[in-house]
Nucleic acid binder design. Structure first.
Lengths: 261, 261
DNA sequence: CGACGTCGTTGAGCTATGTCAAAACTGAGC
DNA sequence: GCTCAGTTTTGACATAGCTCAACGACGTCG
């Protein structure tokens, strides 16, 4: 849980506090050398104008558990994650929580927001991000249609993923949810080059439960079930090794399960 | 349920069948006179170039129960609904179904699709749509950045709505789901000018169940509960009258419940 | 206008998953 | 290596919502 750390935006807003968090201003973290650029929307930026992007970015970093922003705050920034991992979530007034997504390096963070943030975002590990003032990034979109096109594609993908999640939340059993979770996470981490057989879970059981619409206990029990069935092995450091690819994909029941991937 | 009618795209694809369904080609349904344009993305089209939009549109109509397209088919078209109502849904291999959305006049239909449709779409009542070949609409986006900007805004809104639905599906009780459903539907229909107190439900109890992640029986029971609690009245012609605005908003627990609207 | 098929409602019992509580593990610091 | 706080796992029990089944309402079509 959040350790009552103040959200970044508050720390910085209009106050004159020492800027503890941003690590560098324009030019300090040149986009040209960015490791996640090929996968991020920045890849759509024409190389010769990359400096314009670098000129409006601020690099920020968060420690585990630190909120980036809270639902309902004025949405002043967009972000691109360069390292670490965050969760985004919505709360009900009595504390029930739905984690609506996990955000990883190269992901764009800021869609779905209007005047205010539509959800809260909190770092799960030490996290690095590029921060853009909204107006400035949007002006950039005007100037570089390729960038806007790319953002639309990202929104499209997220929309498709959201519908997949609705199917999961509305109609899948606990076992299917966990299986889908593992295969989907495996697919996204392998997109960034890592093995698909070993999935690292930077989030707690509670977060997984709140993501899948289950209780912590059910998540835990279901992991044990999958373990006893020989489908996964639970390894140290929050790693899960997928032992039986076919079975877990069958359980996950995503259309692409039949691909046997 | 679908009456085994063939999806529109099949009926028309490359075959030489008489085009029974499209009601008019370019120019026949001039965008200038379109009743939903002010609310649809077409509103972002500069008036003086509206003819270009009209030039690439085909008007199609569906009868109740007729599929527009099926999940997995090549996604050749985008649509804008001009009349009626559709449901979009995803299926699991054993027939479990998640209705991921209802689509009403002025809504854009086509986001979230990649090469193939990410979900199936089926008319719930007699429905009229404008149909655009994907490439052509996308070429239009290139030419009219305002249009693309508008589409991005739509995607944004849908993303926010999707997250709200995840909260509903993952964490709300049956009563809260039905209450949220009614208030949200009331809000969208009032956007198109109708009363907010009387909500018309063009969809069956089964559809509502598949939309909210509940069984038909639970939907039905919950409606009766709300009725007995004096919160709604069930009227003929699938209408629901909201008697106690405050209570239903409290139940719905959407952040804006506190607005008392 | 009456019969039929579909859809919605109600009832009764079942089960997957939630809740509460305690035990076992894990990792950070000392 | 030991301790402590937090997390995960396991257990026992409770329950919201599901399933199966019957009944009722309603619109449609002959």
């Amino acid at each position: 849980m959040a350790k009552a750390a103040k959200p970044l935006t508050e720390l910085e807003g209009t106050t004159a506090l020492p800027r503890a968090v941003p690590r560098g201003g324009p030019g300090v973290a040149p986009c040209g050398a960015c490791a996640v650029r090929p996968l991020a929307i920045c890849a759509a930026m024409p190389l010769e104008h990359l400096a314009q992007l670098a000129a409006i970015v601020t690099s920020v970093s968060l420690t585990a558990g630190q909120p980036l922003f809270l639902e309902g705050e004025p949405a002043r920034h967009h972000f691109i994650v360069t390292g670490g991992a965050l969760k985004i979530y919505k709360l009900l007034s009595d504390g029930r929580r739905q984690v609506t997504g996990f955000v990883f390096p190269s992901d764009f963070l800021g869609l779905a927001n209007k005047e205010t943030y539509a959800y809260s975002a909190e770092a799960m590990t030490r996290t690095e991000l590029c921060r853009f003032r909204r107006e400035k990034l949007e002006a950039m979109l005007d100037r570089f249609p390729q960038l806007e096109r790319r953002l639309l594609a990202v929104a499209n993908d997220e929309l498709a993923a959201a519908q997949e999640r609705m199917l999961l939340l509305g109609r899948k059993t606990a076992k299917e949810r966990i299986a889908s979770f593992l295969t989907t996470l495996g697919r996204t981490t392998s997109r960034r080059g890592e093995s698909k057989q070993v999935v690292t879970l930077p989030m707690s059981r509670t977060d997984i439960g709140d993501y899948l619409g289950l209780s912590t206990e059910t998540v835990s029990r279901t992991f044990t079930e999958l373990k006893l069935a020989g489908i996964v092995r639970l390894e140290p450091k929050s790693r899960v090794r997928i032992l039986d690819d076919r079975k877990i994909n069958l359980l996950a029941e995503c259309e692409d399960a039949t691909l046997g991937l």
